[in-house]
């Protein structure tokens, strides 16, 4: 990989829940290179959003950070005060959320929401800010910028709302854009448009993207590298093509098998197939490898101790099949 922009090292994080402590991350490592798109893939509940919130430090109140570092451009974000972190958000890191219909404020016009973001991050107000906002809207391919500025979010389509979110996220040329399932709430054609838009903007502006998606097919199309997540662990990581076309970890192989055939992809039923079994209850996770109850290749050792993160072909995998990097 190129120079890392973001390095997550040995991240440990748990949630306090009614059913006890949920130890989600037990030493997670992740890098995002400068100008790179890293796809983070995994089923719902694997910890993708929590990873995003850990990086941008917007965790829910019952989350407990238990150690590790999140270094962005040489700065360890976990060491910053809340006030310093506020300057990082919106300027160095921003985020686009899954459901634009709830992520935009319903009682403010687009204009007012954009102007607040511009004021907070660039310190510009009034006419100057309005010109900036219009330019941003055009840049996300919303041609009738003036009309959109005067609209309330619910007057726009889901795709338009997501473009507005992206425009706001890119206000101050951030270094890292985290996109948490940015296209899950829109239909297939819009999905492609939004992904192409993100790709174009990234090429123009040079920011890095952490793209979270539950679809490994989407991740392959738009990412340089892919990290596959399962139950709070990164179980496989490598170049996007390699991870998909020659998957190493049994879980990744399962995800790839679920990619619908090209013809079926046009039908909007995306969940035709799933990996057999269910994500475990993480307040009481399986001992050893967290994937072992669902694994077709399970061995005795998998039930007892957690595997290491070994080299597996051109990728890395958290699996005893590659113990000592031999495969």
């Amino acid at each position: 990989m190129l120079d890392p922009l973001l390095s997550v090292r040995d991240l440990k994080l748990s949630f306090q829940t009614e059913r006890g402590e949920l130890r989600l991350f037990q030493g997670l490592n992740l890098d995002v290179g400068k100008g790179e798109v890293l796809g983070v893939v995994g089923e719902s509940g694997s910890g993708k959003s929590t990873l995003a919130y850990s990086i941008i430090r917007l965790l829910p109140p019952n989350a407990r950070f238990e150690g590790g570092s999140v270094v962005l451009g040489g700065k360890d974000l976990t060491k910053l005060s809340e006030k310093q972190m506020r300057d990082v958000r919106g300027r160095d890191i921003t985020m686009v959320f899954q459901d634009p219909t709830t992520a935009l404020n319903p009682v403010f016009r687009v204009k007012d929401q954009m102007l607040k973001v511009i004021k907070a991050n660039i310190g510009v107000e009034g006419a100057e800010a309005r010109v900036l906002a219009m330019g941003m809207l055009r840049n996300v391919e919303l041609p009738d910028a003036a009309a959109i500025m005067g609209s309330f979010p619910y007057e726009l389509s889901g795709g338009m709302q997501q473009r507005v979110m992206i425009a706001m996220a890119l206000t101050s040329n951030p270094q890292l854009l985290i996109a948490d399932e940015p296209t899950s709430a829109v239909d297939a054609t819009i999905q492609v448009q939004i992904l192409k838009l993100l790709d174009r903007l990234r090429r123009e502006k040079g920011f890095s993207v952490l793209l979270i998606t539950h679809s490994i097919a989407v991740a392959k199309e738009v990412s340089d590298r892919i990290a596959v997540m399962y139950a709070g662990d990164i179980v496989e990581e490598g170049e996007a093509e390699k991870v998909v076309d020659s998957s190493k970890h049994p879980y990744t192989q399962g995800l790839v098998k679920c990619i619908p055939a090209p013809r079926a992809r046009h039908e909007s039923r995306r969940d035709l197939a799933t990996v057999p079994g269910e994500v475990p209850d993480l307040t009481d996770p399986p001992p050893g490898c967290r994937f072992h109850p669902r694994c077709p290749y399970v061995m005795d050792v998998c039930r007892k101790t957690k595997p290491g993160y070994w080299k597996a072909g051109d990728s890395h995998a958290l699996c005893y099949l590659y113990e000592g990097g031999k495969a």
């Binding site: 958000r89 919106g90 959320f97």
Partner: peptide, 10 residues
């Protein structure tokens, strides 16, 4: 969600 958005945008 929109409050979280506002925080994410600084």
């Amino acid at each position: 969600d929109y409050v979280r958005t506002a925080r994410a945008y600084g």
